[in-house]
Each structure stands twice: as structure tokens, then as C-alpha cells.
Write a protein that binds this DNA or RNA. Structure first.
Lengths: 197, 197, 197, 197
DNA sequence: CATGAATGAGCTTTCATTCAT
DNA sequence: CATGAATGAAAGCTCATTCAT
């Protein structure tokens, strides 16, 4: 009486999700068909529905997965001794290791969020988490005297994270954009914007 | 055999494009069907192909149209006596009159540009124009002593426009985001970032 | 500016419905596929949906059509001078011209009505009409002194029509059943059942 | 290697069949899937195929099972002293204990018999048995002087059983039909139809 | 100019069935 | 005995596009 092995199940689910990710990156959520995903994952269409109830569910799981990746690194920020310096280093890191967070998928997620309430909810929840993290960062910076005390932490965090986040997409607008120079400029922007006094 | 009246032709094309715009906003480029667009425009499918050779062409025209709207206002900037002040006012305007430049459509365009070379080319060309405009703006500001002379005009322009541009999408991430406060914060950011000395 | 010709439209719809009828007779409502119906009608799958919004709608239209045929002949009954005699003749007619009302389709309708509320509603409405017709017939017979006055017209009509109706399906249970002899026996049954005194 | 216990095997088969019956009643032979039946029976699809070689076989077994139920009670009829009275009582019983012989399942069987030769054969065999039983009943009635000697026993039996059998389905045509009144009327019909002299 | 009939490939999803464990 | 992973054909339906009128 062999029971289902949850670990194996999750594993397979993940592999399918990764295949779906590659297809979505190539063709978008609507442009990639279940058939494409099955071919990429090396399974039959019928079998895919053992793991995902519908294409919708795959898109939602994909959204969750794509966003999850983007804020893992920020979480350790607050523990650092000089948080402003750590933050600037993080900006640099993000610019240079862009391939881990495919901007194509994020664009797809944002476009989808525009009209898909479930995806929108996931995006909102993620953004909430990220914003809170940064609000805490700004507050901490203010307490340590590194950040201007007159700035509203919440709005500051939103504007700032947005500016950094979207800088990653600059190469979509201009393929020749130099991410290294962009990161340097961003660091200047952040430094001047937040500077105490 | 009557001749086609080019003005009338353009007029009709525009009306169809506007109908398509409403559909695309609702359902995305792939989610809106030719049938939907025809229904919205009040014409028959056969007739639509009189004005557009394919759905691809509609998407391309739509992209052109959507981007075109977003930079009309910037063009007059350089003529103003105090360009920095004019720029800050423009930021405010953009935040408050968001409905003219539907962020849904822009998200769609960006996602599409990810995988559609023609749309990508349109986006790149548009971004090039915008960036040049702003590079000129930064240079002018530097010459007039309003902007820090040490900033590279090109990169500065890219980072700056991107930050402003993408701030319009903040309400997609957080429906409760206060655009007025966001605009105020953006103005602080721009002022401090560019400030001479 | 050619407008849609409603007559042509109805005509085509009818032809598709007849093709569907043949398929349903062969394979049942669920066993006949849209593809089968299209092949039988000589059209493409996409085109069928110009005329019917879904397979459900085809089944409903089919139900309406199948039932409609069965009660056309009864309607003239009440106008006859000797209605009992006319009724008995009608029983005979029904037995011998069974091919016009394919029992396969009626079985399918009844089975479908078991779990499809829309089809059930159509069946109920049709039965209501038929029962009313026969209740009137029984009453008229009672007034003319040909039918026993003690019989409740409503229940009598229901039991009677049901017995006649379902006799048509006897050949499904027994392929060798002699419909002529069955009709003769039914006539005896009706005569004795209804007889005044 | 253990041996299969035939009793246990039959038991399990029956339990699956009963689960299938509930599914078929809800959704019809074609509408109920193997998956539904497995869920209802609480077993896995692989296991089901241990007991039934195919869905076809389940349908055939179901048919057998559904028909079997309907004639159990008639068999004791001939042993009664006053068989006509016993018959009338049986009519009443059938009308009031309809839930034992679900008309949904019988409709399904009849519709299926229309196009499935195996199911048709089962139905024919069952009907043959039932008809013979009733032919014997009519003959016995004639010998005892309770039934008109001029009626052909075979045809009489067919028409009569059919009328009673199908009366059970009247509530499918008219959900508000009063089965008690229907049974009373059926008894009048039978009495008058068969009456000697 | 304008219509809508017509196409056919392709979509997501379901389902009876098989098989390794 | 029993599981559930896996298959692949087929289902109902959509949609961009063409074309006769």
C-alpha cells in the first residue's frame, strides 16, 4: 500500500514550474501553451493536471515564485552594522546579478496583475512585505543618524524601492544600457536623497 | 470607382485604434480578440482588415500610440525660463493626471517588448527620444548652474526618467498608494539628486 | 451593406440541427461530438458556433424539436365529430408511422431530463401541453357521453397518454414486437378503460 | 502468493457497483467518469481495474443490476390465491416505493440500449423474462376466470407491463404528479381492461 | 465600403486506461 | 492487494483571418 510521497510530488511540481518559467519567459503567460510547457517539462498534457488544476494556477504559482526570488537578499540588510553602506552594496549586487531575477517574468507578472485579481493580490502582498522591510530600514537609518529625519519613512521607502526595482528593467528599454554605470548613479541618487541634514 | 479619402481613412483607423485600446486595457494584447475589438468599434471583422493588415499591426500601432502620449508634455520643458521648476511641476502633473496615460497599456507594451522585436524596436526608439530630451535637460541645467556639473548627463537622465516613469505604476503595486504624497517625495528626490554643489 | 438574411440563417441552423439529430440518434447526446456533427453537416467546427453558442444549446434545441414532432397530430383531435373513434385511429397511426418520431431521440431526451434542468423544463412544458390537450379530450368525451363521468379527467389523461406514448418504445425492449397487434390491444385497453357506464 | 477469496472479491465488486450506481444516477453513464466512481467508492483507478475490465463492463453490470431489482417482487405473484388482487396491490407498492428502483438509472439503461448491443441484449433478455412471467399471469387469470379469455395473453402482458412500468416515470415528466392517485387510476385501468365478460 | 459566413489550426481540459512499485 | 504516476487521444470551444456578396 504505497502512499503518495509528498517530497517527490513537490519536486516534480517544481520541475514543471521551472519548465513553465522558461516558456513564460519566451512567450508570456498567454503566449505559452500548456502543450509548450508539457514539451519543455517532458510530460504529457494529461499528467500536468495531476500537479496543477489549471493554467491559471500555474500562472499564480509562477507569480509567487518570481516575486519570492526578488526580496530574499534584502532581508539580511537590517542586521548589518552600517545599513546604508550595506544597502548601497545591495544595489550594486542587484545590477550585476540580474539573470537570477528575469525581468521578462516580472513584466509579465505586472501586466497580468493589471487584470487578474489573484495575481494582483499576490503582487500586493509581496509589495507590502517589501515596503515594510524598507520602511524599517529608513526608520533604522534615521535612528542611527544616517538618514534625514524629515523624510516620511513609508513614502520614502515606496519611492526608493520602486526606483531601484525598476532600474533593473532599464535594459529592456535600452539594450545597450550600462548596468554598472546605472548602479553607480543609483548609489549617488540614494546617498543624496537620504542624506541627513 | 471612388477614391479613398485619406482623412476619413485616418479618422476611422483612429477610432478603431481607440476601441482596441479600451479592449487591450481590459484584457491585454493577447486576451482581447479581434472580435472584441470589432464589437467595441461597432464594425465587422472583415471591415477591420480594411484598416489593419493583422492583429500584430494593431498591437504595433497601439504601442506607438500609447508611448506617443507619454512624452508630449516633456517637449516644451526646455523652453521654460526655470527648467528645474518646470520639471518639478511636470512631475506633479504626471502624478495627478494619470488617467491620460493608462499604466495598464504601458505594462502591456513592456511585457510585449520582451518578446516581440517590432514592439521592442518601437519602445527603444521612444526611449531614445525621451532620454535625449532629458540628457539635453540635464545639460541645460548644468549650464544654467541649477544642476550638479559632476553628473554624467546621459546616465543621470536614464535613471531619473525611469524613476519618474515607473512611479506612475506604484498604484498597481499598492492600490492605496497616495500619488500626491508620492509626487512630493519624488520632487524632493529630484531636487536633492540634481542639486549643484 | 449586405445585412444578415434571417431566413437563410434559420435554414442553415435547421440543417445543422438535422445533422445533429442524426448523430444524436446514432451515438446519444454525449456520445456524439461536435466534430461528428460538423462532419455530418459538412461545416467546420468554428462555423457551427456561429449558429449555436454551445453543445448544450444544440441539445436543448434538439429536445424542443424532438418533442414538437410528437404532438402535432393530436391537436386536430377535438375538432372531430366522434372524438373517441378519432383517438383510436390516431393510436393506430402512431404505431405505424413510428419512424417520424425516432424513439432513440426521445429516450435520450428523457435520460437527459433526469439531470439537465433546462431539458427537464422543456420536457415538463411539453408534457403540460399534451396533458392539457388530453384532459380536454376526456372532458369532451364525458360531456358527449362517450367517456365514463366518474374518471378524474386529469389523472386519466396522464395515465392514458403515458401508456400510449410509451407503447411506441416497446420495440426497444423487444425488437420482434408486432406494433400492429400492440395498437389493436391498446385500442381495446382504451375503449374498456374509458367506456361510459 | 495468496489466493483470492471469491466471496470477498464479489463483495468488493458489489460495493464498487453501488458507488457506480450513485454516480450514474447523478451524471449518466457517459457523464460519470471512472475518477468519479473511484472517488465515490474510495479506491484508486488502478484498483478498480482489478474488479472491472473496462467502463463498458461496469455499465453492463450496472444494467443487469438495475433491471434485476425491478422484477424481484413480481415473481411471487403467481403463488397468491387471488392473483388479480395481488397484482393490484403490487401496482400500489411500486408507485409508493419508487426510490428502490431509481427511474434515472432505468432511463439511462433504455437510452444506452438504443445504441449499445450488449446493453440492448441484457434489456431484451430481462424484458423476455418479465413478459413471460406476465403472460403466465394473464393465462392463469384466464383459467381462474378472472381475466377475459378473448385477450391474447402475450400482447396483453406486453401492453400491460409497459403501461405500469412507464407509469413510474410519470414524475420525470411532471414533478408534481401524484403517484398515489396515479396508482389508483392504474388499478381502475387494469381492472377494466382485464375484466372477464 | 461593409458585411458576416466560413475556415481550420490551436487552445485548455478530461478521461479511460496502463503500469511500475 | 492497492496505489497513483503517467499516457495520449479526443473533447468542446476560440480565434485570426479570408472571401463572396
Amino acid at each position: 500500500m504505497r502512499k503518495v510521497d509528498p517530497a517527490k510530488f513537490e519536486d516534480k511540481r517544481d520541475r514543471i514550474l521551472q519548465a513553465a518559467g522558461r516558456c513564460f519567459q519566451r512567450a508570456g503567460f498567454r503566449g505559452a501553451s500548456i502543450g509548450d510547457i508539457c514539451a519543455e517539462a517532458g510530460i504529457s498534457p494529461g499528467h500536468l493536471y495531476h500537479y496543477f488544476a489549471s493554467k491559471e494556477v500555474i500562472i499564480e504559482a509562477m507569480t509567487e515564485f518570481a516575486l519570492e526570488k526578488t526580496n530574499l537578499r534584502f532581508e539580511k540588510l537590517l542586521a548589518k552594522p552600517d545599513i546604508l553602506k550595506a544597502f548601497l552594496e545591495e544595489i550594486e549586487n542587484r545590477a550585476l546579478h540580474c539573470e537570477e531575477r528575469p525581468p521578462e517574468l516580472l513584466m509579465e507578472v505586472r501586466a497580468e496583475a493589471t487584470r487578474n485579481p489573484v495575481v494582483a493580490a499576490i503582487l500586493h502582498r509581496w509589495w507590502d512585505g517589501l515596503r515594510h522591510l524598507f520602511t524599517a530600514f529608513v526608520r533604522e537609518g534615521q535612528e542611527r543618524g544616517q538618514v534625514d529625519k524629515n523624510l516620511d519613512p513609508d513614502i520614502t521607502a515606496a519611492i526608493l524601492v520602486n526606483a531601484i526595482e525598476s532600474a533593473a528593467n532599464l535594459s529592456l528599454k535600452d539594450p545597450k544600457f550600462d548596468q554598472q554605470k546605472g548602479a553607480d548613479m543609483l548609489k549617488i541618487l540614494v546617498t543624496r536623497f537620504l542624506k541627513a541634514e
